[in-house]
Nucleic acid binder design. Structure first.
Length: 866
DNA sequence: TATCCCTGCGCG
DNA sequence: AAAGCGCGCAGGGATA
């Protein structure tokens, strides 16, 4: 269908200013393209409006019209407007331009006929112009009001705006399509006049508010007769990280949606510590009253239930979670937004029912309870939908049941347990680090001139601060490249306006500058100590709990491949205006004794690390059926060492650990599609090694000559993703790569490399999750107190009592090297899988055990070796 | 003051 | 023409 657009005469007459010179755009445009106002189909009564970046062009509108048609909207019933009214080529609209043009748009909006009540706002520029907000990914998918008032016609209007991303962004990155279409469907339903959008699920007819003893007893009976319970807590804490063990932490309310054994559905909300709660003083007893009935319900559902379970466990409620809707959503589509609200929106068509959860204690109790109950209500309906989808996909279902949900439950314990931290070392070493940093900065200051253009003055003109900042600041760039006149070796990203990026002050650049100026080496050292102080010691000292342990949150939904991410509970959480809540990522603890030596096991136990040796290379060898690699592994050889020998030209016994580690990054680089140019950079940055272009090309060629099947496998993955738009790991984890259909070659090539990497990374990380759940079961069966305390991608960290070591070590090795892959997934490996073991009182001092020491544990080997 | 984007670097 | 993958945290600078 072709769409013919014309300017709407009423709006054009009132708004258009052909001589507009409020910004630079008009100078670039031909006269007829200056100040192009609202367009629509003549002789059709418009029913909705669309705001984009520019006035609609025929081609762009046609494309958009197809999307609109797909969700049931008639594009001829639309009024199209631009945030910027001039049609130009070459000039990108910045904030100043959008601001200048904004009044025109609001005049247009004020003049829209009454048949138009909803506005689709597409892209960040339109968002800025229509709503005065910036950050489309944050504001999309929700409803906002636009108040318009036209001074001449004296007409006031309230329009409902629904922002989404620009459809041009969708064409470039097809990965965005799903969320975009959900937004359009939602918009279409609202234009259609349906209250609550395209809601497929109605809210509960009534919510049972448990405010007295009678209702509490009824709730208990309902739980006793329940087949399924969906649950959710609201919590509050003075501790900014919301750690449940903080003395100030309380459960504000708890809610349930219950499906009884005779299939009746009901929603319940129980106020607990809320200030207006009738149970406030005895809330813990109320929880205890329903504890057993709640824990015995056969099936339990929650959205990110690991969080709720940690808090409930703090007050003695041990509820095993059988179905987590967030994790199911992630497994079914790793790319989508996983919050309850966005999922209810895209999957059930339910509009946001949110309240500001930051200040729950000051929200009226009934609002909190309703909100809390709706959370469980919609969680229940998400469960029904996702359960059906998982039942249809056997392999995903196996993953979900065999180890995804079990490991989620295991991480409840791991996060609560935390990792033991040597308090004494922590605080003394922090002081040492600060001292070291101060020494470096003293030396650096010798190169700072008395006069420099970065001094800061207060209002009285007194010197406030010396403006010296050795971080990657404008001051540092001035000092190095203007004052000292050192050469600019590399620049950052080009600016939007085409001007060159700022000179890079990264380590690789400093390594080159170190040959001509002594300051560069000092800066390299400073960066390291600064990072130690701020990102590690500051966070550790702040977050260590009274029992000498540091806790992190592991997200099972944190990555696209199935790896875990580790860090703070909520991204972007803040204490105050300036200060972020600190988080600890226990997967990025620096690999040196100074910092890894802070963590360990308390007296009476050992810190034990089992890691899969070269696991990604082994998996790649398996997936590629690479005969040389497989042979090397079957004969017990080390591919990283082979590469290290090639790079250094040293024989095996002279290659250092550090050199081998660096060769590793080169192997992974080539394995996953790195080109020779990037290899030159890698060799220099990681290795301090100068490689010529010829050498780089030779090395890469040699790598693939040695392992020729890898290239065949690369081709196979590229063909696979081109055909299906997705790839799968051997266990059936799916990585959707819609960007493979992008017209942008760079975007497409990126998707191809991801298609190569993903199955490998997925499989390797799933091996650790499987280890975790099998081991946990073994520990329980064998009555051991040994426990996992965390994972680091291909490694499992444990805390094992001294008297269990002899039994635990060989058992763990046996389990990890012989996972039930055939029994659970029908997968058979040809490459041997090896788990290496390190033991120590502290992580940093842990010693690698020889195979016979694993089978014949003797604590004295730790001391005799030292 | 709050937010966004970028740089830089810690880990696998 | 050019292209390793996967993360989280601290900080600077621009902008409204």
């Amino acid at each position: 269908m072709s769409l013919v657009l014309q300017s709407l005469p009423v709006i054009q007459k009132a708004v258009r200013e052909p001589a507009c010179d409020l910004c630079v755009m008009s100078a670039d445009a031909s006269p007829r393209d200056v100040c192009v106002t609202a367009q629509g189909s003549p002789s059709v009564v418009p029913r909705y409006a669309v705001v984009g970046k520019f006035p609609p062009s025929q081609k762009a509108t046609q494309e958009l019209g197809d999307y609109l048609t797909e969700v049931g909207l008639d594009p001829t019933e639309a009024v199209f407007m631009g945030a910027v009214k001039c049609r130009t080529w070459g000039t990108a609209p910045n904030r100043t331009i959008i601001k200048a043009c904004k009044p025109y748009l609001h005049e247009e909006l004020a003049l829209l006929p009454d048949t138009v009540t909803h506005v689709l706002v597409m892209g960040n520029e339109a968002l800025q112009a229509a709503l005065g907000k910036s950050g489309i990914t944050k504001y999309r998918s929700q409803e906002y009001e636009i108040q318009t008032f036209h001074p001449e016609t004296k007409s006031a209007r309230t329009l409902t705006a629904i922002p989404t991303i620009a459809h041009s962004a969708v064409s470039r990155n097809p990965g965005q399509l799903q969320g975009f279409m959900a937004d359009l469907r939602y918009f279409a339903a609202r234009v259609g006049g349906k209250e609550g959008g395209a809601a497929q699920v109605a809210p509960p007819k009534n919510i049972r508010y448990v405010l007295d003893k009678l209702e509490l007893r009824r709730l208990k009976r309902a739980l006793e007769n329940a087949d399924i319970v969906s649950y959710d807590i609201e919590s509050a804490s003075d501790h900014p990280g919301f750690l449940e063990s903080d003395p100030s932490s309380k459960i504000v309310s708890i809610s349930f949606t219950i499906l009884s054994k005779d299939k009746k559905l009901s929603a319940w909300a129980v106020p607990l510590f809320h200030p207006q709660s009738p149970w406030r003083r005895i809330w813990e007893r109320v929880l205890e009253f329903i504890r057993e009935a709640f824990c015995k319900v056969p099936r339990s559902i929650a959205h990110n239930g690991k969080f709720d379970n940690r808090w409930l466990r703090q007050w003695g409620v041990e509820r095993y979670l059988t179905f987590d809707t967030m994790l199911a959503a992630h497994l079914l589509n790793e790319n989508r937004a996983k919050g309850l609200k966005p999922l209810a929106h895209t999957e059930l068509g339910v509009p946001n029912w949110g309240i500001d959860t930051k200040d729950l204690l000051n929200v009226p109790i009934m609002e909190v309870l309703e909100y809390n109950a709706l959370d469980t209500w919609y969680t229940y309906f998400l469960y029904r939908k996702f359960r059906r989808q998982l039942l249809e996909q056997k392999r995903l279902r196996a993953i979900f049941q065999r180890f995804f949900m079990p490991s989620a439950n295991e991480f409840t314990g791991i996060e609560r347990r935390g990792v033991w931290t040597d308090r004494k070392r922590l605080f003394t070493r922090y002081e040492e680090a600060k001292q070291k940093l101060a020494e470096i900065e003293t030396k650096l200051r010798e190169y700072v001139p008395e006069d420099h253009p970065y001094k800061l003055y207060d209002r009285q003109g007194n010197l406030k601060d010396d403006g010296v900042n050795f971080n990657a600041s404008n001051f540092l760039r001035w000092l190095l490249f203007e004052h000292l006149g050192l050469p600019v070796i590399k620049r950052g990203k080009e600016k939007d306006d085409g001007s060159p990026g700022a000179p890079s002050v990264a380590e690789g650049v400093m390594m080159e500058l170190a040959e001509i100026h002594p300051m560069a080496q000092l800066l390299i050292d400073r960066v390291e100590w600064y990072k130690f102080c701020t990102a590690f010691f500051a966070a550790y000292t702040e977050l260590i709990t009274a029992d000498d342990r540091i806790h992190t949150t592991f997200k099972l939904h944190g990555t696209t491949t199935g790896r875990l991410s580790s860090g703070k509970e909520n991204d972007g959480e803040k204490i105050s205006a300036k200060k972020q809540v600190r988080g600890v990522n226990l997967q990025q603890v620096p690999r040196n004794k100074f910092i890894r030596g802070l963590f360990g096991a308390p007296p009476g136990s050992y810190f034990v690390e089992f890691d899969y040796s070269q696991v990604e290379l082994r998996v790649a060898a398996e997936l590629a059926h690479e005969p040389t690699m497989i042979h090397l592994y079957q004969t017990g050889q080390d591919i990283h060492m082979t590469m290290a020998m090639q790079m250094t030209g040293k024989p095996a016994h002279l290659v250092t650990k550090e050199e081998r580690k660096k060769a590793k990054s080169v192997n992974f680089g080539f394995l996953y599609g790195m080109q020779w140019r990037k290899y030159i950079e890698t060799a220099w940055n990681n290795y301090g090694l100068r490689v010529t272009e010829e050498e780089a090309q030779l090395f890469r060629k040699a790598f693939f000559l040695q392992f020729p099947e890898l290239l065949v496998w690369h081709r196979k993955q590229r063909a696979m993703v081109a055909k299906y738009g997705r790839v799968e790991s051997p266990l059936g984890r799916v990585r959707h790569l819609p960007d493979i259909y992008s017209p942008d070659r760079e975007v497409k090539a990126e998707a191809e490399r991801q298609a190569i990497n993903s199955p490998v990374q997925s499989f390797a990380s799933d091996m650790i999750l499987i280890s975790l759940v099998v081991l946990h079961k073994k520990f329980r069966e064998m009555g051991l107190k040994a426990r996992s305390i965390g994972t680091v991608h291909d490694a499992l960290n444990l805390e094992i009592p001294e008297n269990e070591m002899a039994v635990a070590l060989p058992m763990i090795k046996e389990v990890m090297e012989n996972l039930p892959l055939r029994e659970w997934f029908g997968v058979e490996l040809h490459v041997p899988i090896i788990a290496d073991c390190k033991v120590g009182t502290h992580w940093g001092d842990a010693m690698e055990l020889e195979e016979h020491h694993i089978h014949n544990w003797d604590p004295s080997i730790l001391t005799t070796a030292a």
